[in-house]
Simulated assay, not measured.
Amino acid sequence: MMRRIVVACGVALALGGAVLPLRQAVAGVSLTSAQQGWVNKIEASLAATKTFQARFEQVTEQNGTSTGTVLLERPGKMRFSYDPPSPLLLVANEGKVVFQDHSIGQVTMIPLDHTPLGLLLRPDPRFSGDVSILGYEQQGNEIQLQVTRTENPGEGEMTLFFATHPLSLKGWTVLDAQGHRTVVHFSSVKTGVSIPASSFVLPKDED
């Protein structure tokens, strides 16, 4: 069950309470002034994105390819609805990420701050302080930011993909603490959309 949480949308950097080896805090890479300028623009763009809707494609080494719809309302709310026949649903709200697997009628909760969603959904998204940039790469109209939690890089790494014109989040890759990789790509992105509050009601155990 926990492994399925980790691969669901690639949102879990930690294993939800599993004991991970402690590692020394990282300092991150040094950026040029131009690169730091793009990072500042990315932070401002994320902060300005209040609502977001898109189709997603998720690829994992273990489970292959799946698709669905993602909804976001900042701060703190996100929903990944998988297309049938997948039994999975993931909702972030109230400081939690709740994962539902209809095939077994159960839900599991992990703290939002233990997931990459915690980085993206915070009121002031930033890539400094408690988040360190491990790598920066820009090719053509795409920027890749490789990040980790400064005080516990052993939890895993996340690489965010951004288009530069216009500046927008295109997806991410998560490498978890066990070395498993999950890739998520977004398409048909819409921002500034109206999203019903019911979309972010946290799932509960099925009777």
Rank of each mutant, 00 (worst) to 15 (best):
V59W: 00
V59P: 01
T60N: 05
E61D: 12
Q62W: 02
G64T: 05
T65W: 09
S66V: 14
S66K: 13
G68S: 11
T69S: 14
T69D: 15
V70Q: 05
V70A: 11
V70W: 01
V70R: 02
L71P: 01
G76I: 09
G76C: 11
K77P: 03
S81Y: 08
Y82F: 15
Y82P: 05
Y82N: 11
D83C: 11
P85T: 14
P87C: 14
L90M: 15
A92R: 04
N93T: 07
E94N: 14
V97Y: 02
V97E: 06
V97L: 15
I104G: 06
Q106H: 13
V107G: 08
T108P: 02
H114S: 14
L117Y: 03
L117H: 02
L120Q: 01
L121H: 01
R122F: 03
P125G: 07
S128F: 03
S128H: 09
G129L: 06
D130F: 04
V131D: 02
S132P: 01
S132E: 08
L134D: 05
G135T: 03
Y136P: 00
Q138P: 01
G140H: 08
N141H: 07
E142D: 11
E142T: 12
E142A: 10
Q144P: 00
V147K: 00
T148V: 12
T148E: 07
R149C: 01
N152L: 13
E155D: 14
G156P: 09
G156C: 12
M158D: 00
T159M: 12
L160M: 13
F161C: 02
F162V: 04
A163P: 02
T164G: 05
P166D: 09
L167K: 04
S168R: 09
V174Y: 00
A177G: 09
Q178A: 13
Q178F: 09
R181D: 03
V184P: 00
